[in-house]
């Protein structure tokens, strides 16, 4: 655990916001009135951002990372193409982020969410809830067993569809590392048509959210696998961090 502690010292590396979507993007209409118009206040991180909640293993159920079975409590499997989603959480210094919370949520195989606000007429699957959570292991690895979500239409421009995607929320070890993103699937033609994916202007950046098919992790006659690695903010690590003020 020594490395875990050392890794978590020092100020956070300032976020490179050029890598992220701009808050205001008229192609994604809802962002127009939900984006700050004044600049953010940038400062060095403080204890409030360099600390964060921890989530013990004891709070987790055995099926929490198995979306095929967790809604029915193991009684009956969800409908859909069975997939394993796995990957590694590391920080910008390429160190694993162990013991961190990874949460996902997604539509069912027909593209419908089990959410009181989702009124799409694709049916709910009685055996699919659509959310899961896990804690990364000591090397930062995580795994989920789920079904491939369906694409779904959404009100934006005249005929917009979301590509197949899984929403991912990651904590890291500090509040300043908090990140929400989405995982897309290799080869999905809808990625190129999606205004939300297109909020990321640099194609190489967007490709970092596209999970490749991973035959090495696929289990014959059972499930296909997709790999999705995640990079969180890291800490500035120099020999001069503890110097006296002004020296």
């Amino acid at each position: 655990m020594t490395d875990f502690i050392t890794q978590d010292q020092g100020p956070l590396i300032p976020r490179n916001r050029a890598l992220h979507p701009a808050p205001y993007d008229p192609g994604y209409k809802t962002s127009v009135s939900r984006s700050p118009s004044l600049p953010l206040l940038s400062m060095e991180s403080s204890l409030s951002e360099e600390t964060g909640p921890t989530f013990g293993h004891n709070k987790f159920g055995a099926l929490d990372n198995n979306l095929i079975l967790n809604w029915s409590k193991g009684a009956a499997p969800a409908v859909g193409e069975r997939i394993l989603v796995h990957g590694r959480v590391v920080d910008e210094n390429n160190r694993p982020v162990p013991n961190t919370l990874v949460e996902i949520w997604q539509a069912n195989a027909g593209g419908r969410y089990r959410h009181k606000k989702d009124t799409y007429f694709a049916p709910l699957d009685p055996n699919f809830g659509g959310c899961g959570r896990t804690i990364t292991d000591e090397n930062g690895y995580y795994e989920f067993l789920t079904i491939r979500p369906g694409a779904y239409p959404w009100p934006n421009r005249g005929n917009d569809w979301r590509p197949m995607h899984i929403h991912v929320a990651i904590y890291g070890h500090s509040f300043g590392q908090r990140l929400i993103s989405q995982m897309y699937f290799e080869g999905d033609p809808l990625i190129d048509h999606c205004p939300i994916a297109a909020t990321i202007k640099d194609r190489a950046q967007l490709d970092r959210l596209v999970a490749p098919l991973d035959f090495a992790k696929s289990r014959p006659l059972d499930f296909l696998a997709y790999k999705f690695d995640i990079v969180l903010r890291g800490r500035r690590q120099t020999m001069f961090e503890n110097k006296m003020e002004g020296m």
Binding site: I13, P21, Q205
Partner: peptide
């Protein structure tokens, strides 16, 4: 150094 994973809306 690596670059942070880009954000997407929570939806």
């Amino acid at each position: 150094t690596l670059q942070e994973t880009p954000s997407q809306t929570a939806g």
